[in-house]
Amino acid sequence: MAEGSTTLLRAEQYLAPETLLQLASFELRAKMIAEGAMNGIHVSPRQGAAVEFASHRQYTSGDSVRHLDWKVFARNDKLYIKQYQQETNLNITILVDGSASMKFGTLETKSGWGGTKVQAGSNRWTKYDHATAVAAAISFLALSQKDRVSLGIFSDGIRGGVRRSSTSDHWRAVIRCLATELVATKVNWTKVSEQAISQNQGNTLFVIISDFLSPLNQIRAALARLRHRGNDVVLFTILDNSEIKFNFDVYAPFEGLEGEPIIEVDSRVVRVAYLNALQKHLQELNRISRSFGFDCTVFNTHESVGPILSALLAKRQAFARRRLSK
């Protein structure tokens, strides 16, 4: 346990954004996050698909003889059919917010470091960078477990993505898509949720990575739609450190990234009110997601991805086991 903790701490250091930033390869960065997050959770990353015995029932005419338990017949001379609990492979759809607000970031990067196209212009680690890093790591993890993964970049609709697949080459397609997509416009949650449902038939785990700065009623409606179709959703809220702490000390005009009007703000004056509003917003988002049985986690773009990701995965694994035991 102690060893595990030590490993975890090391992984955290590795997964700090400052460290990740220095990894020019997007692929490498995602692998590091994924392996760091899985540390101590998965005994075998190659577990794959499995068929597990559940119970016996008496043979009736019409049953396939293929599932007869011949050993029981030999001992008792009675025909019993073996029944199995089959674990189907998980369908994961990762939805990454590509709206203009994701361009925001305050952590400075150095020229030539790796990143998305969004980061390249500003030399800052944006929320979109952080979102893609998390999305790449999750897809890596999922594909490692032979889960089927699809990707969607959304703003006013799902603008691009990768179709569902579980092949080993699929991960590179996901990475390529994340690295090349540009962000723009506002999020249209209604349209996004409808497109996501139409593109993903059957039970799907939606991992939505966004700053969720849209009106909460729109988000609630979208989540309700996903829940209604029996899907599970994990919400990853990506916020910049300055958005969380609002540590400005200036009187300046603030310009919205999604076309909002410029407003003159004395940051010292509005700081407390802003933090209260943010706190209220996040609490409400968390309440909404919990009301549907979804998980919601906040990521600070200036902090490590791994610990939060691994904690979330552990929590979901435990949740899955509890549900299985029932």
Binding site: D211, A252, F254, E255, E258, V265, V270, Y274, A277
Partner: peptide, 22 residues
């Protein structure tokens, strides 16, 4: 009051709420 150095900001809705309150 007239010192102006524009800051790009994402959470404008929250900021607007805060400004209106204060």
């Amino acid at each position: 009051r007239r010192r102006k150095k524009k800051i790009e900001w994402a959470a404008m809705d929250l900021l607007l709420q805060a400004v209106q309150q204060t």
